[in-house]
């Protein structure tokens, strides 16, 4: 068993090396470095979106399509407050608060009414909520060029003749830090223990007297905070457009799939790999046009790899 796990990691490392080697062959090393750095930033965003999805899914059984929309609402609020001349950190805080409030609203008021439906129906219902948020944001803020910049954008380090801003480093560090933080939270705290109990068997956990409502509320709040942070980072690094941020969840789900909707470390590695491969594809003259397809192809391949050797039989619950 352990051997198989190391085997998986080895296979992943070999594949990544092969992909980067093949695509980067003949390119200037500096360009390859730039593409990898750029890919790690995008990949961190995919991973963060995926982590939010997985934490929530494990604890509540809801696959949340509305995380991107909540992040977009937060980022637009931050922009608005800054435009009104408020102190910038207040805007960032508002971004986190708005995203958390929106997510908690759904988690406390709407999700319980759907508790009896199938997982897939619960998932698509969140898309309805995402549409409400997106429509409301687009109504409040007519389309206009906007941007958010963080003070960390001005600070940067030079590496191999390229400049990498502190924001990118912060994002990368944050995505690793968040995974470690959540892992510790799940492993060391009572709430974390209860969350794991809910994840492994909801009915049994309920029978054992685990305060489901409280645990779920905390999970929704964590997901909301993550959505707000991802939205803010996305707005700074990629662009501040609500619809783009909203539909960021789809590659986020691809990252979540890599971790089988449970293993956060694999979600992180998967998301980062997706970002890097997507950016490296720019170096291929044939594939550069379709590079955004990378997360979906990778997720589909990973799913198939996980299912290898399984026969079509009476598997347990999904």
């Amino acid at each position: 068993m352990r051997l198989a796990r190391y085997g998986n990691w080895l296979l992943w490392a070999l594949l990544m090396a092969a992909v980067i080697g093949v695509l980067g062959w003949g390119g200037r090393p500096q360009m390859v470095g730039l593409f990898i750095a750029s890919g790690l930033a995008v990949g961190s965003l995919y991973a963060l979106a995926g982590i939010g999805i997985v934490v929530l899914y494990r604890a509540t059984g809801v696959l949340n399509f509305a995380g991107g929309a909540a992040g977009a609402a937060g980022a637009m609020t931050a922009w608005q407050l800054t435009a009104w001349g408020f102190w910038e950190p207040l805007g960032w805080l508002a971004c986190l608060l708005v995203a958390t409030a929106i997510t908690l609203f759904y988690g406390r008021l709407i999700a319980p009414r759907l508790a009896w439906r199938e997982t897939v129906v619960k998932a698509v219902a969140t898309l309805g909520f995402a549409l409400i948020i997106l429509g409301a944001i687009s109504f409040l803020w007519a389309d206009d060029p906007r941007s958010i910049s963080l003070p960390t954008d001005a600070v940067g380090v030079r590496l191999l003749g390229m400049r990498i801003t502190a924001t990118r480093l912060l994002l990368f560090a944050a995505s690793i830090g968040i995974v470690i933080g959540i892992w510790l939270f799940l492993a060391r705290t009572t709430i974390g223990l209860q969350m794991r109990a809910l994840a492994s068997d909801r009915d049994l956990a309920a029978l054992m007297g685990i305060p489901i409502l409280r645990v779920e509320t905390i999970a929704w709040a964590i997901a909301g905070l993550l959505a707000g942070f991802t939205g803010l980072m996305f707005a700074d690094l990629i662009r501040l457009e609500p619809s783009v941020i909203t539909f960021m969840v789809i590659p986020g789900i691809a990252a979540a799939i890599c971790g089988r909707l449970e293993n956060l470390v694999v979600v992180l590695i998967g998301g980062l790999s997706m970002g890097v491969i997507e950016n490296m594809l720019t170096m291929s003259p044939v594939l550069r046009g379709v590079r955004p397809i990378a997360p979906f192809v990778i997720a589909a391949l990973v799913l198939l790899y996980y299912q290898r050797g399984q026969r079509l039989t009476f598997g347990g619950r999904d």
Binding site: S38, V42, T282
Partner: peptide, 19 residues
Amino acid sequence: VLINPGAPDVNSALLEAMA
């Protein structure tokens, strides 16, 4: 250098232009 309208990330296109 062409950007896919559905793709969020523009940095790789910028790098392609540089290259």
